[in-house]
Design a protein around this nucleic acid. Structure first.
Lengths: 154, 154
DNA sequence: ATTGAAAACATTCCGCT
DNA sequence: AGCGGAATGTTTTCAAT
């Protein structure tokens, strides 16, 4: 992984649909060289995937909440994680340090759905209680941070 | 927004680099029809963007933390939000209900960097104190949830 | 709003450096 | 590891429906 790879990654984080020709122009390489590098970045697991980002309320998911999961004394974290993964409304799941074992982000259509979702969460074996923080607005989300200074990616 | 649009959105969430021809085959439309629909979804703000997802530790950002921001009595939330946005390590920023005004997700290289970042956060005018939850592992993150049942997107 | 055709463009493979 | 050429496939525009 050299500076060129990092530039390519930054460009693909900014625009996941950039063509190899575009990327080549940006970093000063031929399209085929970029193609080869991106292929290696993908198969080595640096680039995990490409996703369209959708405005949640446009797809009927206007309610977001961050929920801390308190485990029971005998909880198996792995089983809890699997059960959390089975709930479609759980968008992200973090195993955390502290007296909560997980923090999850859920997206649902309405507060009624949130209530139902909390019911499902609490019914998971190993979950003692939940602590819910409702998101009022998302200022920004998933911003690219390449790890170093230069972020001039148009 | 009809069922076809939703199918296209789901496919682009699963694979942000799918070609219009691919999408057309998947939903039973010509590439040009898909092109037109996607263009409308983009300009109407349903599709916000396309991003490559990168393994954070591969780009030297192995430490993730979720940080609650407690405001001072006289804090201006908007000013705090702007200041949070200026910190490159703050990847996401949610305005929340409760006694914390924001919850942010930060990604840094090391716990030393986390300490420095917390210093920067606390120095923001309007920030009284922070509550930090260190992420031990990310089980999953940013999973697509189309809002309804069928999620059979290969 | 969708199509099919056509031109421009991008991808992808391969031999060469 | 990168380049350029060539074949194939895709994007993008447009007239027609």
């Amino acid at each position: 992984m050299d500076a060129l790879d990092r530039q390519i990654i930054a460009a693909l984080r900014a625009n996941g649909r950039a063509t190899y020709a575009d990327l080549g122009r940006k970093v000063g390489l031929s399209a085929s060289a970029v193609h080869e590098r991106v292929g290696k970045l993908e198969s080595s697991g640096v680039i995990v995937g490409y996703h369209a980002v959708v405005d949640p309320s446009s797809v009927g998911l206007g309610v977001t909440a961050l929920i801390g999961i308190h485990p029971t004394d005998i909880a198996d974290d792995n089983e809890v994680a699997v059960a959390l993964g089975e709930l479609i409304e759980v968008e992200s799941c973090y195993r955390v340090a502290g007296d909560e074992s997980f923090i999850v982000k859920v997206r649902v259509a309405t507060v009624d759905d949130l209530e139902r979702s909390l019911g499902r969460l609490r019914r998971i074996p190993g979950v003692a209680r939940t602590r819910t923080t409702v998101v009022l607005s998302t200022r920004f989300e998933g911003r690219p941070n390449t790890g170093d200074e230069d972020d001039d990616v148009t």
